[in-house]
Nucleic acid binder design. Structure first.
Lengths: 130, 130
DNA sequence: ATGTTTGTGTTAAGTGATTAATACAGTAAA
DNA sequence: TTTACTGTATTAATCACTTAACACAAACAT
């Protein structure tokens, strides 16, 4: 039940990435209320300050908005969410291709590797928010 | 001519990754002598201590060995180099698949994205060591 | 012998991330 | 009013990373 962070990368950035994914994939639906800073901090086992820093970042990007004394909510701008999803996907594909070609990997070789690995990583379901 | 590092990740780890790639891809050939710590530090614009930390890590992995007062060399164990290349590729493919499926990306959608992006990232040559 | 280059080690300083421990203001329900 | 919850802000302490400025031992060329 405890979440694991890469000790070599700021936690708040890993949280930003994680939450962005949850929003982009729809696991955190548009307009949905988010748990309180303190609760989320407890859930992920980090300091409330660290978690707030991550949420502030997402707010800056427009993915969340806050009602001062009521809580935080996911944006209802579905267009923005779709854009973010598209952007995240593009970034990762680009980075992946660059990394793999730096290893001397051809496009065919790369697709073959994905074909092999897909079965192991992704068994039946696509959403694993548990 | 200056190299850019992600300010949110330790430089020595980024160097380890970079050098691993150079060795795995053969850009740094087996048995080749590596430039001195001081020269490499100058080249990459970092402190010699930081660069030595990266090289020590590669040495720990067996990818390099040192002759005390002569310099460092790439391992001549081609099998090890191939293994590392394979391992790096596997890691990245696995992480990529996990990230993309977390975005709700299907395998076909994923391969389609790669197909599109490959042309932009990789024009004609496969080795881009400047 | 002398100077240069090699890898290696040490010490101190500065920076940023993280945590802990608070405090404050506003809302809602009892 | 009182209580509990919300987001937000501040301060101090700790830790890892990075850099700077050295020093040392061994090999080699002159």
């Amino acid at each position: 039940m405890s979440y694991e962070f890469d000790s070599h990368k700021p936690i708040y950035l890993q949280l930003v990435e994680l939450f962005s994914q949850l929003i982009a994939s729809g696991a955190w639906a548009a307009g949905m209320r988010v748990a309180s800073v303190r609760d989320l901090a407890m859930t992920y086992g980090v300091n409330p300050n660290t978690l707030q820093r991550a949420l502030s970042e997402l707010e800056r990007e427009g993915l969340m908005f806050t009602e001062r004394t009521n809580g935080r909510f996911i944006t209802e701008d579905q267009q923005l969410i779709d854009d973010v999803r598209q952007q995240l996907a593009q970034e990762r594909v680009g980075q992946f291709i660059q990394q793999m070609s730096a290893l001397g990997c051809s496009k065919d070789e790369l697709i073959k590797l994905i074909d092999q690995k897909w079965g192991e990583e992704n068994v039946t379901d696509r959403n694993q928010k548990s």
